[in-house]
């Protein structure tokens, strides 16, 4: 579930407001978006990979908030970790060239 919008990282582009399929965020007049309907979050991680500055953190637990804080996520280098694992860089898709699944298929 979406847990954190980091005000120090966010550049207020409102991309997360637009991409979220469950309409969880609300844009604000002149500031960072707010998590307005957290209970609607589907834990799809889309907002996190679209955010150009890795300012969002979606926790793995889908049934309810875990209560993780920005300092904790920061200390464990969790901001942006999904985009890094996927190979997405600066909001651009990519990384499938590193996918070794075909090798696993051959090994089977």
């Amino acid at each position: 579930m979406i847990e954190i919008v980091s005000a120090t990282r966010c550049v207020e582009c409102d991309i997360c407001v637009k991409v979220c399929p469950a309409n969880v965020f609300d844009a604000t007049d002149n500031g960072v978006p707010v998590i307005a309907r957290q209970e609607d979050c589907q834990t799809c991680f889309l907002c996190e990979i679209y955010c150009p500055t890795d300012a969002l953190y979606v926790a793995e637990f889908a049934e309810g908030p875990t209560g993780i804080t920005e300092a904790q996520a920061d200390a464990r280098r969790l901001f942006g970790s999904y985009a890094r694992a996927l190979g997405w860089k600066r909001g651009k898709a990519g990384g499938s060239e590193f996918d070794p699944t075909h090798r696993i298929r051959v090994a089977q």
Partner: peptide, 9 residues
Amino acid sequence: RQGQPNCFV
């Protein structure tokens, strides 16, 4: 891990 990052995150 490399092929299915979404499973391991």
